[in-house]
Simulated scan of single mutants.
Amino acid sequence: MVAGSFSIEIESPVEAKRLWNAVLDTHNLLPKQAPGLISSITLVQGDGGVGTIRHVNFTAANKDFSSVKEKVDLIDEANMVYCFSHVEGGLLGKKVASISYKVKFIPKVGGGSITTYTCDFDSLPGVPHDEAKIEEIKADTTGLFKQVEEYLIANPTLYC
């Protein structure tokens, strides 16, 4: 088993609080804003808070898997930190033994924000490190973020 991690940092003109509020509503927002990738997100257990399990269904655009169940592990409102992990589906059991994410929104002086997105994973025994796949995931994550960012810019009163 190989432990791995990667991070991306995205600067945005959108205020950190708006992005934070949007991430808390991803189960409603993403199927509407990224219908080419996400067909639905259903809350299986919970109300969106810590311990919530959500089932994310992807479209055929996601070549690696059709769905994943995620668990909300941490919601730190004061520091705008949101953590979740995969509990079923996705690459679990195929390439990784575990995978978790941490998203943090940092206000910038003068407006806008910086979002840090960190992924920690343990690959399954015998699965080689795939830097090209990590770069693809980083690009896809940034692309999805930019879609949400554009939507928030176009709708300046949303998630205020």
Rank of each mutant, 00 (worst) to 15 (best):
W20D: 01
Y159M: 15
Y117V: 00
D47G: 11
G49A: 12
K17A: 13
D120R: 07
H129R: 10
T142C: 09
D122I: 13
V44L: 13
V96L: 12
A60F: 01
K138L: 02
L19P: 09
V109W: 02
S100F: 01
K95Q: 11
I38R: 02
K138A: 03
F58W: 09
G143S: 02
E77H: 10
F84A: 06
S66E: 09
A132M: 05
Y117R: 00
H129T: 14
V23C: 11
T118E: 14
K133S: 14
Q147F: 02
G143D: 03
L29K: 05
E135P: 04
A60W: 04
T52E: 04
T42A: 15
E150K: 15
T141G: 04
D47I: 01
L29S: 06
H86P: 00
L24D: 01
E136T: 15
L19W: 08
S85P: 02
E88T: 03
I41E: 05
L74Q: 09
L91E: 08
G126Q: 06
D130A: 13
V96N: 01
E149F: 06
V148T: 08
K146H: 10
D130E: 11
L19M: 11
V109K: 15
I41M: 12
A78D: 14
K108E: 11
V109C: 04
G51V: 09
S66T: 10
K71I: 11
N79L: 07
I114E: 07
R18S: 13
A60Q: 14
P125G: 07
D25F: 04
E15S: 12
Y82H: 13
K108Y: 07
I106Q: 13
E149S: 07
Y101H: 14
E9D: 08
T142K: 15
